[in-house]
Amino acid sequence: MSDLNCGSGGGATTYPQLRVASVFIILIGSISGALFPVLAKRTNWLHVPKPVFDFAKFFGSGVIIATAFIHLLSPAISELGSPCLSPAWQLYPYPLALAMLSIFSIFIVELVAFRWGTTKLAALGVKPDTHGHGFGGHAAHGPEGGSLPDNDSLQCEKIHEDLESAHNHTRLDLGAAGQIIGVFILEFGVLLHSILIGLTLAVDPGFKILFVVIIFHQTFEGLGIGTRLAHLQLPPKYKHVTICAALLYGITTPLGIAVGLGVKSTYNPGSSTASIVSGVLDSLSAGILLYTGLVELIAHEFIFNEEMITGSNGRVAYAISCMLFGCGVMALLGRWA
């Protein structure tokens, strides 16, 4: 991707005005891709048919998986295999090991979080199949003779209603927390990747081709992120999380470009330090997106989704086709970036 030497010289300085304009152009594309699905889901004036949302959702899953393999893991292997690095880096497949480490780290974090949530619910007496039956139920309706409930029965029913309301609210909060953790993990992997893309674009000699490809890359990836955010089932007090996450994605690559332009006289993406930093971050990000794409998206949307298990063959085939299309488009972009 770059013909820069292994020294500490600066990056390319061609097309200075277009490089500055790229900050705003990519900002618009990234925010539009990530924010549009969220707003369309929450507002009536941006009504989008459900089939369109389904297409975007499964298309986005494919985009995320292709990003992990083609746009993260492959560059990480090249970066940590750079001839600019010491021979010690060639003695072990560090990119694959770091990606594996990232996958298991995310798995352990999620496992601990959900075990803690389950324990918390159990301590409060909340179970998935509990709907309050049997707690003062018969007494609340009085004897079989149909007499009116007494004061003790009314008080018991009131206590039961208060407890069930508190339990349901706690369950809702913990469910929302689990979803927010999942979004945070996905966003973290994508944001690391987006910053590196911005830094590279700011100083890369092959700017024009890379610029066009990254516009599509960030828009498609934003669409995948935004659609996932739009489908989160969060309580009203957590609704702002989706907007903030979409905006955070939108500003990350432009921020990386701006930083790259600021340090273009000293930042050399082909240097040893830059190769190590980029390779390590790309490897970790690849593991995050692989775990999210394969477990959180594919497994939950297909294998553990009742609609897919009992749905028609046509619906399942359509969903898989959308996912493969998104994966194919993003993989194709890897030809140039």
Rank of each mutant, 00 (worst) to 15 (best):
G125F: 05
L111T: 08
A56D: 00
I159V: 14
H160N: 11
L333R: 03
Y92G: 01
Y249A: 06
F304P: 02
S105P: 00
T170D: 00
E164T: 11
L39F: 12
D282R: 11
V329L: 14
L332S: 10
F69C: 09
C327T: 04
K41P: 00
N151H: 09
G250V: 11
S265A: 13
G224V: 12
S86T: 07
Q218M: 12
S283N: 00
G132M: 12
W89A: 07
G222P: 00
A88R: 03
K264L: 11
H167N: 14
L332V: 14
R228P: 01
L46I: 06
H47K: 14
A97S: 12
G326L: 06
K208F: 12
V329R: 08
W116Y: 08
A202S: 06
L196A: 15
Q233W: 03
I243C: 06
S275F: 05
A97H: 04
G250T: 07
N168C: 02
L72M: 13
K239D: 01
A139E: 10
C322Q: 03
N268Y: 07
M308S: 01
Y318E: 03
V213A: 12
E221K: 09
I106D: 09
T119S: 11
L199F: 13
I106R: 08
S2Y: 04
N151Y: 08
I215F: 14
P143V: 07
A140M: 09
G326R: 09
A166E: 01
S153Q: 11
A176P: 04
H300D: 01
I25C: 10
T130C: 12
I70G: 02
P16F: 12
A56S: 10
P49I: 03
V52G: 03
Y238W: 12
A139F: 13
I77T: 05
T170I: 03
Y267S: 05
R19K: 09
C6Q: 03
T43S: 13
P93A: 13
A246E: 03
A230E: 02
L96G: 02
G328F: 15
H141E: 02
F207R: 13
A230D: 02
V241A: 12
H160Q: 09
I180C: 06
V183G: 13
C244K: 07
R115P: 00
G328E: 01
I251P: 04
S74Y: 07
S78L: 10
T43F: 15
S165W: 10
G206T: 02
L247Q: 05
G314S: 02
W116N: 03
F302A: 10
G270P: 01
L174W: 06
T266W: 14
F53H: 01
V259I: 14
I195Y: 15
F114N: 10
M330A: 08
H71R: 07
G145Y: 10
I159A: 14
V23C: 11
A286M: 04
S271G: 15
F325Y: 14
K127E: 07
V203D: 05
F107T: 02
I320N: 02
S165V: 08
V329W: 09
L232N: 09
I31F: 12
I243K: 08
N168R: 11
G9W: 10
H131K: 13
P16Q: 07
R228L: 10
L223D: 04
S153G: 05
I320K: 03
S61Q: 08
I197H: 08
